[in-house]
């Protein structure tokens, strides 16, 4: 696989505190890479190292096959968690300034701004000051500033905070479109449902160490526990429960249903297959509900962090 970004054995200490301990991540080209971890795990430090805001004590970062250089910042778009804009500066002027800092000419910046303003339905804000905008409007400007120089690598730290659901969706679609157009996205968030929706790779950092990484699907497979949620319509609930308990590991569960069913989560041991469970159940009554329990990103996150 071709990687756009590789951080190799990166360590960073602040005084006594070790913020990152020998962390290695590999971000495949064209992917949406979820950088996950509890608060204070070291995600922001790693992101700042990639942005050359802080320097690593040891280890190195490779961007598109080359060790990180100062001029690489033009290839990176970064939306920090702690973000803001100059409040008393006009929208247009400010965007042009920030784009110039990323290496665009003023004219080019203006042209691209026109495109983005139209795209995100930003009308006549050009001469408004940031302090006159609502929080959501300012966040839109912030998003444009992050992406307008067409960077190869986009880093979003909690990109949806401050957006209402409609605008969050709009931004989500824009991020996915940028990915489709060839950008690679690193995505750091605590909102596991958006990880589920958007990420194809993830890395989990906990207490300065990387404790998990890989393709989200592969990780899910690894965390798969061969458990099924079943709903069985039967007259003799006690007898069925007893028989089930004998052969399988069961835990009571509830799910929405219009019938009064026997509801269980059933874990199938290695010696049996799902088909065995189905034939076992159908012999006792009518099988209304049979769903494999797939671990959610949320489950994986909690389980892995608690285990460590």
């Amino acid at each position: 696989m071709e990687y756009l970004l590789q951080a190799n054995n990166v360590s960073k200490s602040f005084g006594e505190f070790k913020a990152l301990n020998n962390v290695t991540i590999q971000v495949p080209k064209g992917s949406v890479f979820g950088l996950l971890g509890p608060n204070g795990a070291g995600k922001t430090t790693l992101i700042r190292i990639i942005n050359q805001i802080t320097m690593p004590d040891t280890g190195n970062v490779i961007l598109d096959g080359e060790p990180l250089r100062p001029d690489h910042i033009q290839n990176i778009g970064y939306l920090p968690e702690e973000r803001g804009l100059y409040k008393s500066m006009k929208v247009g002027e400010q965007c042009v300034y920030l784009a110039q800092l990323k290496g665009l000419t003023a004219n080019e910046a203006r042209k691209r701004l026109m495109y983005w303003f139209e795209r995100l339905e930003i009308g006549d804000w050009w001469n408004k000051k940031i302090q006159e905008l609502s929080k959501g409007q300012a966040q839109k400007i912030q998003f444009i500033v992050t992406v307008m120089h067409n960077p190869k690598l986009l880093i979003f730290d909690e990109p949806f905070s401050g957006f209402d659901p409609i605008n969050a969706n709009l931004i989500k679609d824009e991020i996915l479109k940028l990915r489709d157009d060839g950008a690679t996205v690193i995505f750091s968030t605590h909102r596991m449902e958006s990880v589920e929706e958007m990420c194809d790779h993830i890395a989990l950092i906990h207490k300065s160490n990387k404790i998990l990484d890989g393709k989200l699907l592969d990780i899910k497979k690894a965390y798969q526990s061969n458990t099924f949620e079943v709903g069985l319509l039967t007259d003799n609930k006690e007898a069925v429960s007893a028989a089930l308990k004998e052969k399988f590991e069961i835990t009571p569960t509830t799910f929405k249903s219009i019938n009064d069913e026997l509801q269980y989560k059933v874990k199938i041991p290695q010696t049996h297959s799902a088909n065995d469970l189905v034939s076992f159940l159908t012999s006792y009554g009518q099988l209304n509900h049979f769903v494999e329990v797939i671990p959610s990103a949320n489950d994986i996150f909690i389980e892995t962090v608690q285990k460590n």
């Binding site: 970064y78 920090p80 702690e82 804009l85 100059y86 920030l98 990323k102 912030q142």
Partner: peptide, 11 residues
């Protein structure tokens, strides 16, 4: 105004 991190990711 929290703009500083945006700026120093460029300069």
């Amino acid at each position: 105004s929290r703009i500083v991190e945006v700026i120093i990711s460029s300069v």
